[in-house]
């Protein structure tokens, strides 16, 4: 865990890219350079364990969608390899993709068709989908996302949230081993976001592996068991979310009416990056028993109102890793 926090952006993933049998997505040095010369994905080594809810985190333009397009066989990698469900993409699209449901860069629908007819069309595009059960499966998918009542309405009359849910329904037309959801809550109101998140949790509890890209940290923290962080086309870190957040160490916060003295004592005690804001002194906790730090404050005559550790968020981890704020476009 400690090595996670010290990983430099350039040293690559802390977790190795070994593709064991339980790895649903495995890429090796996956790279995409667009024809304009834009390096969108740069040497990506990704390992998504089976059964995980894997958050693929990165600011806009960091290469998430490009990665997903390569995983789904929509674009050819410039170099490197990608394996999905154990098979090489894009060669094995025919055998792999029937077992994968995907939502890529927002839903795309036929506005002149009803919601139901949209799903019937997407289902008939899958040569492994049984036409005898098509209507029943479409009805079940509509029900799952709560669109049964609106099923006969033309898709162009749908709200953004309804379109998003119809897109999700298309990903759920068959039992899937892997769901790839590219920013599924983008553009939704908080209520819509909650609905999608609870759906994702539900699907994950059925044993489906979910690969969820997002530029929202709290979203990843709320629903994901694992995460990978992207910035400017490069993978910065990947691993279980708990470890990633713990990797960025918490903040020691001291509340006191004597901030000046407190800061001096805390520095003597080995606290780094000390920041004083009115009656709050914060910094990186020293490598020693915090009880002794507190005792040192008290014996130096500093009146302590509050003394405690603030748990680091994934955002702190991100800032610690990249040295920049999160909403920076690559």
């Amino acid at each position: 865990m400690a090595e996670l926090s010290t990983a430099e952006p350039d040293t690559g993933p802390a977790t190795g890219p070994e593709a064991g049998p339980d790895t649903v997505i495995a890429t090796r040095a996956l790279t995409k350079r667009f024809r304009g010369g834009q390096l969108a994905v740069d040497g990506l080594d990704l390992a998504v364990p089976a059964g995980s809810v894997f958050g693929f985190l990165g600011p806009n333009g960091s290469g998430k969608t490009t990665t997903i397009r390569m995983l789904m066989g929509l674009i050819e990698p410039t170099s490197g390899t990608a394996r999905v469900l154990g098979q090489a993409m894009p060669r094995a699209t025919r055998t792999v993709l029937p077992q994968v449901g995907a939502l890529i860069e927002g839903p795309a629908l036929y506005g002149f068709l009803s919601g139901r007819d949209n799903l019937l069309r997407y289902d008939s595009a899958d040569p492994t989908a049984d036409p005898r059960t098509r209507r029943a499966r479409v009805a079940a998918a509509l029900d799952r996302v709560g669109l049964t009542a609106a099923a006969s309405k033309k898709a162009k009359a749908y709200s953004l949230g309804m379109k998003q849910r119809l897109g999700l329904a298309a990903a759920l037309l068959q039992p899937r081993r892997l769901l790839v959801l590219d920013e599924p809550t983008n553009g939704l109101d908080p209520q819509g976001m909650r609905e999608i998140r609870s759906l994702v949790r539900e699907l994950a509890s059925d044993g489906t592996t979910v690969f969820l890209s997002s530029h929202l940290l709290d979203e990843i923290e709320q629903v994901c068991s694992h995460a990978a962080v992207m910035a400017r086309g490069r993978l910065i870190i990947q691993g279980p979310v708990a470890e990633l957040a713990a990797g960025a160490r918490g903040l020691l916060v001291v509340t006191t009416p004597d901030p000046g003295d407190a800061a001096r004592v805390l520095k003597e005690q080995g606290m780094a990056d000390v920041v004083v804001e009115e009656d709050r002194v914060t910094g990186e906790p020293p490598d020693r028993d915090l009880a002794e730090v507190n005792a040192a404050l008290v014996s130096a005559g500093v009146r302590v109102r509050g003394f405690g550790l603030e748990r680091a968020s994934l955002e702190d981890a991100f800032v610690a890793l990249t040295g920049e704020g999160f909403d920076v476009a690559g």
Binding site: L74, R94, A108, L109, D123, A125
Partner: peptide, 17 residues
């Protein structure tokens, strides 16, 4: 319309489509 990517991940197959 963007529907092409969903037909292809269905997967419709490029030749078949």
């Amino acid at each position: 319309a963007g529907t092409l990517r969903y037909l292809l991940v269905a997967p419709a197959g490029r030749t078949r489509l």
